Computed example of a mutant assay.
Amino acid sequence: MYSFAARFLKIFLSLFGRIDVYGKEHLPQSGGYVIACTHTGWVDILWLGISVFPTKIHFMAKKELFQTRFTKWLMTELNAFPVNRENPGPSTLKIPRKLLKEGKVVGIFPSGTRTTEDVPLKKGAVTIANLANVPIVPAAYVGPNNFKELLKRKKPVLIFGEPIMIDQQLPKKEKIDRMLHILEKEMTSLQTGFKSKVKK
């Protein structure tokens, strides 16, 4: 189902303009890792999944998307797993940690919600990467966020940064806070850096 959906969506979205992907060479060639991407609309989720295919991303998704039998089946088939954003439980860490240990890729949007504003990142991505001892690849999406913007053929761009490894020698709180600061800085830099180049 995942492979079929990825191929179909690539054809569908390409009708509105092909995506430019930068920094894909930064993606680790083996082992599990976390992709932490900016999140401004539903389109970025689709392009992120398509851009790394045939590598499959296991997305963390809000539990509300799993409430009906059909949507639960669909989300599961698309490699998504639920998280209660208001009251995260043990599974919030257990499921992605298990996936990463199996060498799989976990996709997380650290802003916690779709927004075009600068908001503090949540610690989930960093905490999960720390527990699994895997790198975090920062990513930024610039482009159409909804169907209206797709129709305007706004150019989609996805930029991957270099993997960030957590310094396991630091005390737990310090390393989480430091990594969160580095991740936030890198994601902002990728996004604003590209936008400034376009303006020139």
Rank of each mutant, 00 (worst) to 15 (best):
A125W: 04
L13D: 02
P120G: 01
I166L: 05
K155H: 14
G193N: 08
I45F: 02
S111Q: 15
V52Y: 06
M75R: 02
G124H: 02
T92D: 05
S91M: 01
G103Q: 10
P90S: 08
F109C: 05
E162N: 11
N133D: 14
F66Q: 06
I95P: 01
R153T: 12
L27P: 11
I164S: 07
L74C: 15
L48S: 11
W42L: 04
L74I: 13
T71A: 11
G23Q: 09
A61N: 01
K123M: 08
P88K: 09
K200T: 08
F59E: 04
E162V: 02
V83D: 03
D118V: 15
M165I: 01
L158K: 04
R7C: 11
A140C: 07
L48P: 05
V106T: 04
T113N: 04
I159W: 03
S14G: 15
K155I: 00
D177Y: 02
Q191F: 03
L150R: 07
V126D: 09
K154C: 05
F147N: 00
I11Y: 11
G124M: 03
G112D: 05
I50S: 09
D20S: 14
E184L: 01
I136D: 10
G23S: 07
L183R: 07
K199Q: 12
Q29I: 11
L9M: 14
Q29M: 14
L190R: 06
H181F: 02
G193C: 04
V105K: 05
I164A: 08
P144C: 03
A36F: 04
L9F: 13
Q169N: 10
K148P: 00
V134R: 11
S14M: 05
K62I: 00
V142H: 09
F4S: 14
P156W: 13
H39N: 08
L48N: 08
A132I: 05
S91D: 05
N146H: 03
K123W: 07
I182Q: 12
V83S: 01
L131G: 00
N145E: 08
M187C: 08
M60I: 06
K155F: 04
E162F: 01
V157T: 12
K199V: 12
V52S: 04
M75V: 01
A129M: 07
T55G: 13
V119H: 04
A36G: 07
Q168I: 03
Q169S: 12
S3F: 11
G107T: 02
G32A: 13
M165E: 07
R97S: 02
L190F: 08
R85N: 04
Y22P: 00
V34C: 12
G107E: 01
I108F: 09
P54F: 03
G41K: 02
V21M: 10
E25N: 12
K152P: 00
K197E: 12
E77Y: 13
